[in-house]
């Protein structure tokens, strides 16, 4: 008996399905075998602790530790005998404690740091004398000349630090044209320090409750030149050096520097500075009784 038309169609259709299934199956099996062999043959042993350490890191991949990304840092941590200088500025001591626990090594506790901008040459304090019309990048302006003001040391204000910051922590204030650091967001990764062509940004100890004192100027010109260029520049008068009871301040090349390892945050230097170049951050407002002292010194 001849099969009817429907049956022929059905058998043909089944054939097509069968052939497709078989072909696909064979291809799949061959590919699986190749993959298996390749995976076995080219297997690279990696210390599983690298993954563990990487998981403990903040995954910011900022390069603040000096390694290319968090994995590079994790690799270095696992391979080194002692953690020593290895430090993740973003995660801080907590993260390093975790890493140390994973690896059974000891982490060196480091003080938490924050970026400070050592220039306060706002438009008000430091008049703009010419107008820059090149590419609005600090590194290009710096490559060309000293800047729009008479101070060849100060901030150019085009915000290369802002571009470099991965944490949105440093921003150029459009009114003052000086970058401002957001303490809460800053991780002290150091990207802005490397980005600033004028070397104005420094990582300093964050201090208790974020209190810190620093010289907001990097001008190494002689006092009279600095004074002409900027109202709030350090003129190297050394009053702060004389008044500091802890010998935390050094003056070189007409520029004062406060060593944050020694500074006890007594704020005496802030009071004597004739140009207000020394900045105090996160201190409570001064009590009225302190003022007379400041006045007598000024007088």
């Amino acid at each position: 008996m001849l099969p009817d038309l429907d049956q022929i169609v059905f058998i043909k259709a089944m054939n097509v399905v069968l052939i497709s299934l078989l072909t696909l199956g064979v291809i799949g099996a061959v590919a699986a075998m190749i993959l298996f062999v390749v995976a076995k043959k080219f297997h690279v042993f990696e210390d599983p602790r690298i993954d563990e350490v990487e998981a403990a890191l903040p995954a910011a991949n900022c390069g603040g530790c000096g390694f290319p990304g968090c994995r590079g840092f994790a690799d270095a941590c696992v391979k080194s005998d002692e953690l020593g200088d290895l430090f993740c500025p973003v995660g801080g001591n907590d993260t390093m404690a975790k890493v140390a626990a994973i690896l059974g090594k000891t982490a060196v506790v480091q003080a938490q740091k924050v970026a400070v901008v050592r220039c306060d040459g706002t438009c008000e304090h430091r008049p703009r004398l010419n107008e820059y019309d090149g590419v609005k990048h600090c590194f290009i302006a710096h490559n060309l000349y000293s800047g729009e003001t008479n101070c060849s040391w100060g901030c150019l204000g085009f915000g290369d630090c802002e571009i470099s910051c991965e944490f949105d922590a440093i921003k150029v204030n459009p009114e003052t044209m000086i970058p401002e650091v957001d303490d809460a967001k800053c991780t002290a990764c150091g990207a802005c320090v490397r980005a600033c062509p004028k070397l104005l940004i420094e990582l300093r100890k964050k201090g208790p409750k974020g209190k810190r004192i620093y010289v907001g100027c990097r001008n190494e010109d002689k006092g009279h030149i600095t004074k002409k260029a900027c109202d709030v520049g350090c003129i190297g008068c050394a009053k702060c050096f004389k008044v500091c009871p802890h010998e935390a301040i050094t003056v070189a090349n007409s520029l004062a520097f406060i060593n944050d390892d020694i500074c006890k945050l007594c704020r005496k230097c802030v009071e004597v500075c004739p140009t207000n170049a020394i900045k105090e951050i996160n201190f409570p407002p001064r009590k009225p009784k302190v003022e007379p002292v400041a006045e007598t010194i000024e007088a």
Partner: peptide, 8 residues
């Protein structure tokens, strides 16, 4: 003395 690029 300042030169043309503003440096001393």
């Amino acid at each position: 003395q300042l030169d043309a690029s503003g440096y001393k």
